[in-house]
Write a protein that binds this DNA or RNA. Structure first.
Length: 207
DNA sequence: AGCACGATTAACT
DNA sequence: GTTAATCGTGCTC
């Protein structure tokens, strides 16, 4: 198997919607103590752009919670919500500008047994098909907030994969912003590709 | 110190 | 389709 290249900081320093679109199909990788490698291809992602974006946590200014989003690109912004769930974002654009992409779903390919153990034995299709689900499966919580996913020997990073053709990409309004005013509520900054459309030639669990 | 709420999920009718 | 779960966070007093 050829070694894939981890995405460098320059990838994330670009405009947030461009980064979100470009991350579709890329491989989110989690390395754990003990050597297990968990990974999947990104199938759903949203852009949150600046304090003018009233759907973005940065709308109320910089706080202890959202501080990571104001930092340099290529770092994780992980936050807690609904009293029980963690969400994984990757910070985008330049240092000082608050923006990030929320990873909402991946197609699980590596480390399925570990993910299943963390997800109460749920079937493969339900392991990582939601933003809190993938954090649970990949053991991501507040310890990963502010983590540099571009550093060498990172335990959380994103590997390059072939670009997804535009014809396979669906754009919709972002999910869960029901009390956010227009135009932010309906602006189509969610990017989605159906998992079955992603090429993965029978790739399975590590041998 | 108290309180309303949330970029969700799972279970239920 | 509806709703309970569950608590860190940010805001007000």
């Amino acid at each position: 198997m050829t070694e894939k290249q981890a995405l460098a900081r320059a990838f994330f320093s670009r405009e947030t919607r461009l980064v979100a679109r470009a991350l579709l199909g890329k491989r989110l990788v989690r390395l754990e103590k003990g050597g297990s490698r968990l990974a999947g291809l990104i199938t759903e992602i949203e852009a949150y752009v600046g304090s003018d974006d009233l759907g973005c946590h940065a709308r109320a200014g910089r706080t202890a919670r959202n501080a990571s989003m104001w930092g340099p690109p290529g770092y994780a912004y992980v936050y807690f919500t609904y009293g029980m769930h963690w969400m994984l974002n990757i910070v985008t654009e330049q240092d000082g500008f608050p923006a990030a992409v929320l990873i909402r779903a991946i197609k699980p390919l590596e480390g399925l047994e570990v993910m299943q153990a963390r997800r109460s034995g749920r079937p493969r299709h339900a392991l990582t098909d939601g933003p809190a689900k993938l954090c649970q499966a990949l053991n991501i919580d507040r310890r990963m907030d502010g983590y540099d996913i571009c550093q060498t020997k990172a335990s959380l990073f994103i590997e390059n994969e072939p670009e997804i053709p535009e014809t396979l990409v669906t754009k919709t309004p972002r999910v869960g912003l029901n009390h956010v005013p227009e135009p932010w509520k309906s602006i189509p900054w969610r990017y989605f590709v159906h998992p079955s459309k992603l090429l993965n030639p029978n790739e399975e669990e590590q041998p």
